[in-house]
Design a binder for these strands. Structure first.
Length: 873
RNA sequence: GCCCGGAUGGCGGAAUUGGUAGACGCAAGGGACUUAAAAUCCCUCGGGGGCAACUCCAUGCCGGUUCGAUUCCGGCUCCGGGCACCA
């Protein structure tokens, strides 16, 4: 055995052994339990970052562990290759997005290979390949036929200078990121997928996802946001009817129909038809409507803006009292939600209260608490009383509880045909149109005579031209006649091809099905889906907890309903990995843009006033002061990424994998530390050296478990305890950090074990074999080599995961903790299996315990078998 | 603003079902080996008090439940994720 640990050589050898033997090529084997292990495929941004390494190592540890547990493991890999960054890069350096993307894929693939992941590369896919995205188009056409896909208008961020739709990310403080122009909202025609049709099922089947983190299920349930309420129609008064040109009514949805008699205003969105009609004849209202249409479409922006509104001077009539209620236009009502209008009840809704207080609108109490707690909030008005209670001042509906009032009011409204109970979801339909180039073309043709005509299946895929370079203004496809000029499939007349592309979430909503049917040429998916799906373990960032996971669940159900091979739920078990954070340092020079600096190059010192000072060297050599901006996810734009490639080159993949798993449990946010990596490297090297020293004396003799002395038994027990812990930590708890800590502890124990006798060497040999097996999912290369060095036949990758020897785990004596009044006072050693009376006697006669208990008899003794005694005096 | 998490030594973290707070590692300090350095090995390492045995305090803050709370409950603070066109 070589004396020194040489990761570069040994990792290359292990990888070529796996490649050469086709170890990770997965095939369907009916009857053998399968394990589909999937990590969220990466966006090919250029280089791998630590978040990727963490994500893929988690998956690889589980894949290798399950393989040793006898499962037929499939672990595929692909590229989420369409998206905005490629267009940005194109604008910066003039290279077409296709070339930039494919170059990145090639580079990142090499990086990935160096990590030694147990991947079936035959299944690799990239969503920008026509062979992949043609099936986006094909299924979209099926959705059109089924009425799941449809066209209507939607609101986007519009940059008036560049004449371009901007992504939310490209709007900074309400201005375009390139032009600095104030952003406007603009309505344009778009295609939508009717995900709300599946809202109830998406909500209900969350309960079947027991293998998902509770927090993700809660987030999805809140996002879907089912609420039961009443739809109420408020009749126009004469003036409003005259304006709208007909009798009519204003429809609202409310979960608080019991507060109907407290409605003192109606608030409608700026885009509401009534608002449009009023604005047409009133300059100041037109100005307010225009003001509402400025700014971004982001919900977070809208939610924090000051609630503003103007009265229209028009009224609707209360359904029971006939009283006129003023109609206001308000900036906090969104056209996309419900009916684009809400019933304002300031006394019992916080938002309405805030708005009414500012606008001087009347506040009318119609609910009081049964306990009287409400009296404290009546007057002077400080806050709304939002709890359920008993109705008051509500005509015939007074004196009812919440549910009774809602039921009675809904029934009365329904009898008159002006209301009904209804379920409302917060979830909105999925708009998939993007006015951008680098994405999957939407397969439609707009014909002057035939309207919107689907591209016939035989003409799929609609291929995206790959040589275009965007310039930031508009969609390059709209300036490329060769793409958009076409003939109508129906009438043959000249027509215009749709130039919008699909949201990239479409691409990622079904790639896991394609992996199972990776080489199906004539179909989107085939029967192999039924073998591999659902995914047994999905691993990805917590930032995808809602959108990607919800869209994938929806898409899978749509495919099922279109009678394609699919499943009810795509992912049985989900592990949401925490983000990898690093410090952020920046400075903004007197002229020019803010610059970010690599945290590894920043020096922390102390200023004259004792405050911390941060400095770094510019490329020119000049030292400058920088400011600390706190923690954030690693990103190129903030220059705080750690390049895993440099670490792999310096320490080897095993060290990088080990550290990524050791630094924190997988679900937790992890703060990067350069120093910690060296500790992981030292551990592997120490293991290598220890095995080398052990083998210097030649092969160890066979182990005779019956002939061991106390010291040998003790080491053997430690080894098997560690094996049991690692099995549980990896297989059940997914706490790889504690599994590694346990192996480190075992190595420390073995290193202190100096018995050179034949059985001593045999026990040590077994301990090293257990360490090698237990560590192999995490650091597979070095373990592959150590396994051979330890004299085992066959490759470690094909070794079954061993079960701990129950006989080795038996303990003769156990330690009991003793507390007096809940404070730890002593530890006593007791024969394993002693009964409670014996334990009590031993504990109560212990002199350290006596000191605290004193002469008086204990008031109470609590005994936790095998663990603890608490004496209360 | 709304939804979801998190907070434990100088640092990353451990304590699995309410039962020994600080495993394992990093950093730091001391020592051994070495001409020297690197590497390696050994020791110390939450804070206060005490010569010591030992003892008191301590898991973001305030309060509660319990024989016993890092763990459960209520109220905060700060940090992170998401908010529908970043992926």
């Amino acid at each position: 055995m070589q004396e020194f640990y040489d990761p570069a050589a040994l990792e290359k050898a292990a990888q070529s052994y796996w490649d050469g033997s086709g170890a990770f090529a997965a095939t369907e084997t009916p009857g053998r339990p399968k394990y589909y292990c999937l990590f969220m495929f990466p966006y090919p941004s250029g280089r791998l970052h630590m978040g990727h390494v963490r994500n893929y190592t988690i998956g690889d540890v589980l894949a290798r562990f399950m393989r040793m547990q006898g499962r037929n493991v499939m672990q595929p890999m692909g590229w989420d290759a369409f998206g905005l960054p490629a267009e940005n890069a194109a604008m910066q350096n003039g290279v077409p997005p296709a070339k930039w993307t494919r170059d990145n894929i090639a580079y990142m693939k090499r990086q990935l290979k160096s990590l030694g992941l147990a991947l079936d590369w035959r299944r690799e896919l990239a969503t920008c390949d026509p062979g992949y995205y043609r099936w986006n188009q094909w299924l979209f056409l099926r959705m059109l036929e089924a009425g799941i896909a449809y066209r209507r208008t939607g609101v986007v961020n519009w940059d008036p200078v560049d004449q371009t739709v901007l992504a939310n990310e490209q709007v900074i403080d309400g201005r375009g990121w390139r032009t600095g122009a104030l952003i406007e909202k603009r309505e344009i025609p778009m295609y939508y997928l009717n995900i709300t049709r599946y809202a109830q099922e998406l909500l209900d089947s969350l309960e079947s996802l027991g293998g998902w983190p509770e927090r993700v299920r809660v987030m999805q349930a809140n996002w879907i946001g089912r609420s039961e309420g009443v739809e109420i129609s408020f009749a126009y008064d004469a003036k409003l009817a005259a304006l709208m040109g007909a009798e009519g009514n204003l429809k609202v949805f409310t979960t608080r129909a019991d507060t109907l008699f407290g409605a003192t205003f109606m608030a409608i969105a700026a885009e509401h038809p009534i608002a449009t009609a009023v604005a047409a004849g009133n300059a100041s209202i037109a100005q307010f409507v225009a003001e509402c249409k400025r700014g971004s479409v982001m919900e977070a922006d809208i939610a924090v803006q000051v609630k503003k509104g103007v009265p229209t001077g028009l009224h609707v009539l209360h359904p029971f009292t006939g009283e006129p209620i003023p109609v206001w236009i308000a900036n906090y009502v969104l056209m996309g939600y419900g009916e684009g209008a809400v019933m304002g009840v300031p006394a019992h809704d916080e938002r309405d209260f805030e708005f009414a207080s500012r606008a001087g609108i009347a506040i009318r109490t119609v609910v009081r608490s049964a306990t009287g707690a409400y009296e404290t909030v009546v007057a002077p008005w400080q806050d709304a009383y939002g709890e359920h209670g008993i109705t008051v001042d509500s005509g015939e509906f007074s004196g009812l509880t919440f549910q009774a009032a809602v039921d009675a009011i809904a029934a009365a409204l329904e009898a008159r045909g002006i209301g009904r109970k209804r379920v409302q979801f917060r979830l909105r339909d999925w708009g998939i149109s993007r006015q951008r180039y680098w994405g999957c073309p939407i397969p439609l043709i707009h014909c002057g005579t035939c309207g919107d005509v689907p591209v016939p299946d035989a003409q799929l895929p609609v291929v995206l031209p790959e040589g275009l370079v965007p310039d930031g203004s508009g969609n390059p496809l709209g300036k490329t006649p060769a793409f958009y000029e076409c003939t109508c499939p129906k009438c043959g007349a000249a027509a215009r091809r749709e130039t919008d592309t699909m949201d990239t979430f479409v691409d990622s909503s079904w790639y896991f099905l394609r992996y199972a049917s990776f080489d199906a040429a004539q179909a989107m998916v085939d029967e192999r889906v039924r073998y591999w799906l659902p995914v047994d373990q999905y691993i990805g960032g917590i930032e995808h907890a809602i959108l990607h996971l919800l869209y994938s669940r929806f898409w899978t159900k749509v495919m099922r309903d279109l009678a394609l091979p699919s499943v009810d739920e795509p992912f049985s078990n989900l592990l949401t990995q925490g983000m990898v954070l690093n410090h952020i340092y920046s400075r903004t020079p007197a002229e020019g843009r803010r610059q970010y600096f690599d945290p590894a190059q920043v020096t922390t010192g102390e200023g004259a006033d004792g405050a911390k000072r941060y400095t770094t060297q510019l490329p020119g050599g000049e030292t400058v002061e920088v400011q600390y901006d706190g923690l954030g996810t690693m990103s190129k734009s903030r220059n705080n990424g750690v390049d895993p490639q440099l670490l792999v080159e310096r320490f080897g993949a095993d060290t990088v994998r080990l550290f990524a798993m050791f630094a924190a449990p997988p679900e937790q946010t992890m703060l990067w530390s350069d120093e910690g990596v060296e500790g992981s490297f030292r551990f592997i090297r120490r293991l290598w050296t220890a095995v080398h020293d052990h083998l210097r004396a030649g092969p160890a003799p066979a182990l005779d478990a019956a002939a061991l002395d106390a010291g040998q038994k003790s080491l053997r027990r430690a080894a098997h305890q560690t094996l049991a812990k690692v099995t549980d930590d990896i297989g059940r708890r997914h706490t790889f950090n504690t599994a590694i800590a346990a192996v480190m502890e075992l190595l420390n124990t073995v290193s202190r074990f100096e018995d050179a006798s034949p059985q001593g060497r045999a026990v040590r040999q077994e301990a090293f074999s257990i360490i090698t097996l237990a560590l192999s999912p995490i650091a597979p290369h070095v373990c592959h080599a150590l396994w051979q060095e330890l004299g085992h036949r066959g490759a470690l990758i094909d070794e079954p995961w061993p079960a701990p020897d129950a006989a080795a785990l038996v303990q003769d004596e156990i330690e009991i903790s003793v507390q007096v009044n809940g404070k730890m006072r002593a530890r006593v050693s007791i024969t394993a299996g002693a009964d409670e009376a014996t334990v009590r006697t031993v504990v109560l006669t212990d002199e350290r315990v006596q000191k605290f208990v004193g002469a008086a008899p204990p008031r109470k003794v609590i005994y936790v078998p095998g663990k603890l005694v608490n004496i209360v005096v």
